[in-house]
């Protein structure tokens, strides 16, 4: 059985997801992910020839809402769970590499 995922890949995915994992965790998750990927691999046994790729698991579409304003929560409620606030802003560690602004 070939290896589906190795520790190097798990470390990379963890880094991309901003997760700081210990060596023990890396080992543990590598094993778990390996098992998951093997399970998913079973689906490759299915013959999907001529089956249209599925974009969504529900057979419905066009669930849209009208452009009508509803109440927002207000800054106090929004900030209630924030670890830190600065006036009505969230206060976060300074962003050095700022490529934000999707």
């Amino acid at each position: 059985m070939s290896e589906k995922i190795d520790e190097v890949q798990v470390r990379k995915v963890a880094k991309l997801s901003r997760l700081d994992l210990t060596d023990t965790e890396i080992k543990e998750f590598t094993g778990q992910l390996e098992a998951i990927l093997e399970y998913v691999d079973k689906m490759n046994q299915l013959d999907t020839e001529g089956v249209e790729p599925m974009a969504h698991c529900l057979p419905i579409s066009n669930c849209l809402r009208e452009d009508t304003v509803t109440d927002s929560l207000g800054a106090d409620a929004i900030l209630a769970n924030a670890p830190q606030r600065d006036g009505d802003f969230f206060k976060v560690p300074r962003i050095l590499d700022d490529n934000s602004g999707a």
Partner: peptide, 18 residues
Amino acid sequence: EDAGKNLHTSGSHSQVDL
């Protein structure tokens, strides 16, 4: 969708407006 705004004004921290 657009992101909110990160404001870099206060020293070692940034402010976020969503």
